[in-house]
């Protein structure tokens, strides 16, 4: 009995030492990584001719002439390693922490912005629709951030397990968006609640495990970095 206790004690000490060492190394390396990049990152100014700047306090900028709606977001690093069907979601919506990009503007203002630039919603999806592609005006969606130096297609920032590509549409769904208050601005498969979603994947593709989406760590900046998402009417 005594032998067993000593053996357990020795094993415990070895394990503790190993785990402690790994923990200290991991936390030390973690403290240094990407911190400077995050702190220096500020969203770029609206380059579409207006003087408005997209920021946390001015999270949605509408440019009727350029037919664009810009949304201030921040990267959620969680979805570099976990799958999600949410691309851009308002932070205070019920899905606020479930998306690759966390938006500061809400889905209802965003909807109104798309209507203001002349986009027509599809409104063809019901909550129980299965295998139906979202309709509505097609949108060019791009992302940029301080240091990116250019607009990058939104699809490049997302890993789609099927590699089908992206076809973003103004789905509409204003009533569902208000009633459910999920905060969904852009869904990665066709969605009856999201204001915009991806027609390349019909409804329930993610739920039925046909497609899986993650943030592309090789394209997107580090967790917490401000990113401006531009929705342009095609």
């Amino acid at each position: 009995m005594k032998f067993m206790s000593n053996k357990t004690l020795k094993m415990s000490k070895v394990l503790l030492s190993a785990v402690l060492s790994v923990g200290i190394i991991a936390s030390l390396s973690g403290c240094g990584s990407n911190e400077s990049a995050k702190n220096s990152a500020t969203p770029p100014a609206d380059s579409a001719g207006s003087n408005l700047i997209v920021s946390q306090t001015n999270p949605i900028v509408i440019d009727k002439e350029a037919k664009t709606v810009k949304v201030y977001t921040e990267v959620n690093g969680k979805y570099f390693v976990e799958p999600t069907r949410h691309g851009v979601v308002f932070k205070d919506g019920s899905n606020g922490s479930k998306s690759v990009l966390k938006a500061w503007g809400n889905q209802n203002d965003f909807y109104n912005g798309l209507v203001d630039i002349g986009a027509k919603p599809g409104n063809n999806l019901k909550l129980d629709s299965v295998g139906v592609a979202v309709e509505g005006d097609p949108l060019d969606v791009s992302i940029t951030w301080a240091g990116a130096g250019k607009e990058i297609p939104f699809g490049d920032g997302i890993l789609d397990s099927t590699k089908k590509g992206f076809d973003f549409r103004f789905g509409g769904n204003q009533e569902n968006a208000k009633a459910k208050n999920t905060g969904c601005i852009l869904c990665l498969d066709s969605c009856p609640v999201g204001i915009t979603s991806n027609a390349a994947h019909p409804t329930k593709d993610f739920d039925n495990k046909i497609a899986e989406f993650k943030g592309n760590q090789e394209v997107l900046p580090a967790d917490g970095t401000p990113v401006v998402v531009t929705f342009k009417l095609k």
């Binding site: 923990g23 200290i24 991991a26 936390s27 973690g30 403290c31 990584s33 990407n34 911190e35 995050k38 690093g77 932070k91 606020g96 922490s97 967790d223 917490g224």
Partner: peptide
Amino acid sequence: PDISLQVANLIFS
């Protein structure tokens, strides 16, 4: 939800 991953990792450690 608003703390950085680095701070969260420090809390974890």
